[in-house]
Amino acid sequence: MWGDLAIHLWEHVQLAAAALALALAFGLTFGILAAYVAPLRAAILALASIGRTLPSLAVLKLLLPWLGVGVASAVVALAILAIPPILINVDLAIREVPRAAIDAATGMGMDGRQRFARVIVPYALPVGIVGIRTAATEVIASATLATFIGGGGLGDDIVRGLQTDDAGLLVASATVVAGLAIAVDLIFSRIAERLEVLA
């Protein structure tokens, strides 16, 4: 039992990490796009806000007819769930960079790219990381549901524990996944505190 649990924990971490990486790529791109391209902003944020409202199990299931079962479709579904919190916070973070800091950078002769790398990113990081933290916790929680579409992970053990009425397995797997979620949340909250201090 414990060997399986360790394997599923590793599966769970991989599943969540892959989904978070994919979500970061899209969330950052569209968050930056929303912050910089005013005409697109309303549409992107409206889509993101609907995305935030959709229940995770529903998203996993709705994609099933198109993506089929398995790890790949679980990663895609989890990534879709994680994009909105990242995107919304990236947009907010960039738009809250003080105008004076940007003007000062321009006055120092920085071009657009330098301003972005040296002023906007450092200022925006503390707020941006909050969205990534939310996304990470959500992905770990939702990855438990990936078992219902054949995605593996610790959800497998919970479901097996429920089906075979195995209290030991059930409590052990539920505790491991809860511990994982809380640990990752703590790690991100430490990172956020560090960045806050630096800024």
């Binding site: 916790t137 770990i140 929680a141 939702s142 990855a143 438990t144 549901l145 610790l154 959800g155 919970i158 524990g161 429920l162 209290a167 059930l170 409590v171 797997s173 539920a174 505790t175 996944v177 809860a178 979620a181 809380i182 949340d185």
Partner: peptide, 17 residues
């Protein structure tokens, strides 16, 4: 906040016990 962080399927499984 710690309760909120626990994945729902895990908490539910524990409560079913």
């Amino acid at each position: 906040g710690a309760i909120y962080t626990i994945p729902s399927l895990a908490l539910l499984a524990l409560l079913v016990q």
